[in-house]
Design a protein around this nucleic acid. Structure first.
Lengths: 347, 347
DNA sequence: CTGAAAGCGCTTACAG
DNA sequence: CTGAAAGCGCTTACAG
């Protein structure tokens, strides 16, 4: 069995595949990359060899030629740790798959944003990904734009004009959740808002108010509680809502952290969830499945959005290298309403 | 200013640096990699050029030669989403910095472990990282070992003999936390255990019991509640502990999720934290700072452990490629006792 | 201590 | 539709 006598030292390369299939490395490369201009028979031979040899492309080799060794910066301030983790996971996954180098810069106020931007530029980034809430920072994005660096905004509620972005439709997501609560039979529904400076928070609130109105229900101000997306703010808001004389039978929180807080308060008042109170969130962060009962929420495909951001910024970089200025893309990904155990018809 | 006339198309390469410094690319490479066998003067010149040109090494180019394009697998089952996210973050960071390709396989029972292992092997991985709880799965690790593939176990409480691992000292961590509670003046301390099949859980429990005993306090079985590391199990355990006639003044939970549950139950009973009840956790996952009051806990440097795992597995891979079989390393990283607002002297 | 040569694995032009 | 040549950016051996 001379075939098995493979050096354990080195992996299978495209040359091995080409030899095995009896074609040139170029043809092998074309098949592997899905180029259709290859005779069907050769394509089959190459595919068989790939399978038989267990070939996996070496990304470093590929990217050296293709991505032209692009470098992508991530400029973030302070979203929740869980959210950022998940997003970075997607960004790093796709970067390593595309052979892109990632540089991360953290910043706070406007001044530090300028400094962080400068550092990224000096490090020679070819494009920048901007997670929330910086995705809505006009000065920062303009700053990058003026330096000729492509930008992809992640999870903005309303992407700035001319800026390529990846997001979900926050309005439709919040609308879907409100409708779900209405369909369950709830009419007295409380809503805990997110940070009013964040565009997704604005849209989620608007969708709730509009959808209630359509159902002939007025979202009065005593049912609209202010929050800041933090657990702590959720605690205060939930306490206010759940102590109303006419207590809501359901509370829709603009994110999962505040929903966790609402569940803690409800628990504190001895309310059974979902029997006496339905609690729902938004985002589907890890906390949603940590809680018990598990949280009904709107799933945002954060990891996939991270991957998409890298793909989009790479496209922009390539276009630019060829001297083109492509129109901005607005990639709207699908959200999902995930029904778990924290929601039911009013008791 | 002819100097500024840099093609925006391509980044600064080591050739540019070498030319600018008036040396060969090799000398530039040596300086950049910290090789000491370079004349001081040349070293300075190269460093200056690197700074002036804003040179950043292209990792794809480097790894093509150095890492010999190593491929690392991650074989995981189902730890908490938050933990895995954070670990993967470290793993991907370091992989992309080292030009290593990462392949991830998920599995469940023993049979699927074998299948997942086979898939990784077929994909040509040169080494495998095994997060908890699989890090303690003897059959899986032996399986890889027999195929000659280096393994790094992450966060095992007691690494299997012969296996390289990255971990913290769970025993000392739990001991430090217990001592802290004792120093605050608590004597009646409840403990919620983790999944008894997990080695870290075993050590944390043992450390608590031992440290209490040293202080002349017996950790009676009614103060030792069973848990499984899940929020839900924490809820049940906390309910039992907090309803004891002689209620503990502090509860030490074997992880943060169970501490979150304990706080929810305490909240439910109208207990002020930390005034009437101190609650502490272990791990310092994102939930610890999401809660309010924020949780006192043992910080485990999960991201850094992910990075270290990659570095270690790469070392093993290189050694093996040179025909050596190095002795296993047991890398014990530092934990930190992070004091936040959920702990205080008994009221 | 320094450098000229070669090559890591892959793909982009270019020629047929 | 197919392939021979060249080169992406870097570093490993080898020679001085």
């Amino acid at each position: 069995m001379a075939q098995r006598e493979r050096k354990t030292t080195s992996a299978v390369t495209i040359l091995d595949v080409a030899r095995h299939a009896g074609v040139s490395p170029m043809t092998a490369s074309r098949v592997i990359n899905g180029n259709p201009r290859v005779a069907a028979e050769l394509r089959e031979r190459v595919r068989a060899s790939v399978r038989e040899l267990g070939y996996r492309p070496n990304l470093a080799g590929r990217s050296l030629r293709t991505a032209g060794s692009a470098r992508v910066g991530v400029l973030y301030s302070n979203p929740s740790a869980a959210y950022l983790n998940e997003l970075m996971l997607g960004i790093l996954e796709q970067s390593s798959a595309s052979g892109v180098q990632v540089l991360v810069e953290r910043c706070g106020d406007i001044r530090s944003q300028r400094a962080a931007t400068r550092r990224l530029v000096e490090a020679g980034v070819d494009g920048v990904i901007v997670p929330p809430p910086l995705c809505d920072s006009r000065p920062t994005i303009r700053d990058l734009d003026e330096r000729g660096i492509p930008v992809v905004a992640v999870a903005s509620g309303a992407p700035l004009p001319g800026v390529t972005s990846v997001r979900i439709d926050d309005y439709q997501g919040a609308r879907a959740m409100t409708r779900y609560l209405l369909e369950l039979g709830h009419t007295r529904i409380g809503f805990i808002q997110g940070d009013p400076k964040h565009t997704p928070a604005q849209l989620r609130t608007a969708a709730f108010v509009d959808t209630m109105a359509e159902a002939g229900l007025k979202a009065t101000s005593n049912l609209l509680a202010e929050g800041m997306f933090t657990y702590r703010s959720g605690l205060a808001a939930a306490e206010r809502l759940l102590k109303l004389k006419r207590r809501p039978t359901a509370v829709f929180c603009s994110n999962d952290d505040m929903a966790a807080a609402t569940m803690a308060v409800a628990h504190g008042m001895g309310l059974r969830i979902p029997g006496q109170l339905t609690v729902v969130g938004f985002d589907d962060t890890p906390v949603a499945t940590t809680l018990w009962p598990e949280l009904t929420t709107i799933h945002q495909p954060v990891t996939a959005m991270g991957r998409a951001a890298v793909t989009l910024v790479l496209e922009l970089i390539r276009e630019r290298r060829q001297g083109r200025t492509p129109p901005p893309t607005d990639r709207v990904m699908a959200y999902t309403l995930v029904k778990r155990q924290s929601s039911a018809a009013p008791g």
